[in-house]
Amino acid sequence: MPIIETRELTKRYGTRPEKSVLAVDRVSFAVEEGQVFGFLGPNGSGKTTTIGMLVGIINPTGGSFRLFGASDAKGLLAARSRVGATLETPNFYPYMRGRDNLRVAAAIKGVGRSRIEECLELVGLADRARHRFSTYSLGMKQRLALAATMLSDPELIILDEPANGLDPQGMREIREIIRILAGRGKTIFLSSHLLWEVERTCTHVAIVRRGRIVAQGTVDEVVSEGTSALLRAEDEDALAAALEDCPEVTSVRRTDDGIIVGLRGGDLAGVNGYLVGKGIHLSYLAPHRQSLEEVFIDLTRGDFESMTEIAS
């Protein structure tokens, strides 16, 4: 039984068709027990809205989902007691001490005081727990949010951009905590922009763009879906121009190392034959394993291009 299962989950903001915004568009995925599931997408792609529906703060407008097999209101409320989650920025009472904030969360989760101290120790906040939340740095706030998430020793941990705004040291600390949790067999649902981190930490990923899932599977599956090749030639301008019209090629990207092309069928010989026909002789042609970041950028290219257009 999947821990999370969504079917055609949809969220539309606004009721008037001409003014409404489709934030999540028929999203379906499943997260099995023990997976570290990366949920990736550019800003505004619907990641947080999807998570918001799972944790009960946003009402879906279509589709359905199950948490630990439960889909009715009563079952979901019980299932959510097995979930630890934090969304976007850490949300705590600024006038209360770190420890008191955890006392509120612990009371809701039905957890004793000793567990509060354990979690504070785990995230390295035991020394600052008597200080007000408003005096915490962003890194400390993120760590307090992680502590709150772990209070009930949940089976499923949902983290939305846990490394947002952190310095490299803070990111490393968060990554270590995630690794410790994954090592304990927790199911982790991680939304993040840090693709290199996700590639190293996650077992499975789903990439979401404009509210729709555009790729999902194990990290290897998603990366290998984007079969690509690295090409070099003496005249790279001519090579790039010829590749634009090549039927085997899905994308062309110039790099310092040469030209990386996405391939429709993985047919390198076909590409070489096409280029010879155009009078271009390659000095280098080899399969190229894309990183998750490259796959992500390829799949969400439109969003990035529009951003660069605005910037320029």
Partner: peptide, 15 residues
Amino acid sequence: SWRTGRQNVIDGLSK
């Protein structure tokens, strides 16, 4: 405004 009510729901309270 502090989104703490939202966090209370995430922590396990229903709305």
